[in-house]
Write a protein that binds this DNA or RNA. Structure first.
Lengths: 159, 159
DNA sequence: ATATTATGTTATAAAACATATCATATAGAT
DNA sequence: ATCTATATGATATGTTTTATAACATAATAT
């Protein structure tokens, strides 16, 4: 007979099947959704690696931009990385407190940012960790395919 | 002579060139960086469109998952979308308060979630907005190229 | 000389996200 | 049948990220 228990089992069965079915996610075919999931996955992996050297992802990004562009200002870094001017302040302060960068009086209120030797050493470590991190997510693609994929993704937001 | 003004102008000139130069961003060739920038750009565009109908991106995602899987539970939605069980609570409560979904006692503590007629109508609106949104970022690619790109990105995090 | 612009800064708020804990109800084991 | 383990929803909490508004200062432009 149709006891409550039976009905409950049927309900459970349906939900178990749901877990196994593949196309239950209506967002699966969306570019925006896949970009978000991939980005979150890579961010988590990178954050884990950078935590071992006491850095957050955003801090590492600022560090590398300064390494490549000695003398760049906070506002310029913000424009390059898409970070608000106001949010650059605690970021740069943190890096300065940890003796990774120096702020040098420049033009107007602007300050030229440069790496300390410790900052330069850490930047090299970052590059190695990033290379390993990227490789973990690009297996199965040769160099040309990697470049093409990255360029296609860049064109999505930068044109 | 080397007045302060002159020195300052030189500094400004250097910074202006920096803005124009192309490869000042050492992250440009990284998959993770491009994924993040593209994801952020698409999220901002989608959020703007969904704000017009009073929804946030996450709320829309939950709404569409319920639309496709009537009777699904909060925990299951969390597993599908990568949202913590605890964070699903205020999400579902918000949708229920706005009379977009109903929570129906099911098995155990679980509750089967279903759309109200208003929720179903809004879900249709969402799908139209999403289609327009996706099209804005996929110009220049035909249907086959779009599918391939999305699949390549999916493989980055889901394998 | 005055108005405008750019930079750094502070304060603040909102949103997203993670963690730990708890009560309850089922499934499974003995 | 009883006990244990597991799953779900819920609450509370804290952190991180991100955005906005306002301000002082120093440069540039008119």
């Amino acid at each position: 007979m149709y006891s409550i228990r039976m009905v409950q089992n049927v309900a459970l069965q349906a939900r178990t099947e749901l877990d196994d079915r593949i196309s239950v996610n209506p967002l699966d075919g969306l570019l925006g959704y896949q970009l978000r999931r991939a980005s979150v996955a890579m961010l988590a992996d990178l954050a884990e690696s950078l935590a071992e050297i006491g850095l957050r992802v955003t801090e590492m990004s600022v560090l590398l931009v300064i390494a490549t562009n000695p003398g760049i200002t906070q506002s310029e870094i913000g424009r390059v990385l898409g970070i608000q001017r106001a949010n650059m302040v605690p970021l740069a302060s943190q890096l300065e407190q940890n003796s990774l960068i120096r702020r040098i009086a420049s033009n107007g209120r602007a300050q030229a940012l440069k790496l300390t030797p410790a900052g330069a050493a850490l930047a090299r470590d970052c590059r190695a960790r990033i290379a390993a991190h990227e490789a973990r997510f690009l297996t199965g693609l040769d160099a040309a395919q990697r470049t093409m994929l990255i360029e296609q993704i860049r064109l999505i937001w930068d044109r």
